[in-house]
Amino acid sequence: MSSPVLKASDLTKRFGDFTAVNGVSFEIRPGEILGLLGPNGAGKTTTIQMLLGLVTPTAGSIHMFDLDLSTHREEILQQVNFSSTYISMPQSLTVEENLWVVARLYGISDMARRVNDIVKKLEMEEFRGKVTRKLSSGQMTRLTLAKAFLTEPRILFLDEPTASLDPDIADKIRSLLKEERRSSGLSILYTSHNMREMEEMSDRIIFLQRGRIVAEGTAQDIVDRFGKADLEEVFLKFAREQGQSSS
């Protein structure tokens, strides 16, 4: 088996008395799509923020491409990217200008070709010259995805990437992700509240509850283990348990 491109060991994050992530360990292998599931407040976003170097872990370690994130931040972040519903892009720039800035930031050679390719791939031609402030939420999501794809990352962190997309575009995005994974060996950490999407996309799933991993395996493994009909029922079980314990 090939060595993991990402290895998180005993990852913990505390904010004062509150423990957001508690001893989480997992790996992602080349070309693998790992689903990160859990109710709101389970620690998914904090985990991704630690993996992106935006939040410093209280304990534990993160290695990507056999490099330690705490000491090789620049080399690692050059090879990863992310897209999320909770980020934005400079609103006064056009879609194309934003992509040019990102291309420069990551030192992409042949910027014009790359930007054109990604605009085409994500069907953004009609609004490539539009000021970002005027984009619909679906177009905005496509822009943040374009930003993530533009840099040809080896690992992509996607936090609810299809949340505000219509079913047609969401389906195209999922197909694009699978195609990128197949053609370039892209590894993806994926979060979504759409359980059908998680089943379709993820090779493996990690369930988080109150900052801890409570289940891990393929979607079918997890459904079978908890004796539920589908992943949504498993999700509801964990969400309600978490809700009861916090109320």
Partner: peptide
């Protein structure tokens, strides 16, 4: 402040930018 107003700090600090 322009980066703060544009909510662009995450994009910058999650990039290789030092």
């Amino acid at each position: 402040l322009e980066e703060l107003w544009a909510r662009n700090l995450m994009n910058l600090f999650a990039s290789p930018l030092k």
